[in-house]
Design a protein around this nucleic acid. Structure first.
Lengths: 186, 186
DNA sequence: CATGCCATGTAAGGCGTTACATGATTTC
DNA sequence: GAAATCATGTAACGCCTTACATGGCATG
């Protein structure tokens, strides 16, 4: 399960509780599990029983008791092994909007335009939210050069994803205005 | 459920059987259900009981009996209503490769490069497959100008998705070569 | 004679989400 | 006094996939 490796990755940086992991995943741009503790707590149990993690109970006063999870040497080895030996998968996407577009032949030009504009708006919102997440996340100050580069590349990937989708909406809008000018000018 | 509207859309062009729908969805670039008859047959039953479709049993000699589904006026109205009144959603993506990348700080430059090259290769394969699908699908010869335009835009969307991902891999590879030159030249 | 296509359907199970339960502490 | 945060966990459900069951016809 991929989420197990995502957790191992996070714990390879520093020990954390399940709750911490949940928050980080909620804020993450590419860990796409939308802050879902159910899966996290189950995964943690499994990883512990596989000896990839150890858990330590931390009593705190003025706050609930928590379990601190640490990655083991076996865990680090498993993560490394996974990274180098897993064949990279092509990305998946779900674009419900394309299904809407596919139905748009029935509509008037102005209606299609309106739809695309709404989509554009939604994309802009999303893009701003992602940038905001990225901004909030930057607390780790002194990463190694390599780590920094990788972080940047990951952000760039997500950023250009939305950018190119936005560019596509521009192309569509222009196409509508050029091809269906007669109608939309009336 | 979105798949219901995808089915309505397909049946709005011409009557079909569940099996036909399954095949089309398998070949579709943006209907992302990977040819899954389970959902299709269930959806068809539901759509029938909602009077959005009618089904007609067709006996064929030399082939199994099939059920031909036709969209009703109510079905067309529901589809149109859905298209114009559903707020467009931002696309979702899952890129397991980014999780792999996030772990790559541990690796040597050459290993990262290898990983990215493999990803690039996988993307190229995928892109070719999608183009092949698109080529095979083009049997509908004389679409209206508007329909043609929409079809083209949808294909363009998917095409540029892979293209921009490929461009990203180029950027990453260059970055590795520039930033970690010392190591990778050894 | 095995494989594959046409055609309909069912079963099992994994992945993922929302929501709930509990309970203490802090903040408005 | 209400709401948010910290913290762990469970329950219920929906979506989606793979695989299976059936059976006739065609193709190699």
């Amino acid at each position: 399960m991929l989420i197990n490796y995502a957790i191992l990755r996070l714990l390879s940086a520093e020990p954390m509780s399940g709750y911490d992991l949940k928050k980080i995943m909620q804020e993450s741009l590419y860990m796409y599990w939308s802050g879902n503790n159910n899966q996290i707590y189950k995964a943690l149990l499994q990883l512990c029983s596989d000896d990839l993690l150890t858990s330590e109970i931390h009593h705190q006063d003025g706050a609930p008791t928590k379990k601190l999870y640490k990655i083991t040497d076996k865990g680090r080895a498993a993560l490394l092994e996974w990274v180098v030996s897993t064949p990279p998968e092509a990305p998946e996407f779900k674009k419900p909007f394309l299904i809407q577009m596919a139905c748009a032949g029935q509509l008037e030009a102005a209606q299609i335009e309106e739809l695309v504009l709404k989509y554009q708006h939604e994309l802009n919102l999303q893009l701003i939210m992602q940038q905001e997440k990225q901004r909030r996340m930057n607390v780790a100050p002194s990463l190694a050069k390599r780590e920094r580069f990788i972080e940047d590349m990951i952000f760039d990937n997500i950023f250009t994803f939305y950018q190119s989708e936005l560019q596509w909406t521009q192309k569509v809008l222009q196409g509508i205005r050029n091809n269906f000018r007669e109608e939309s000018q009336r």
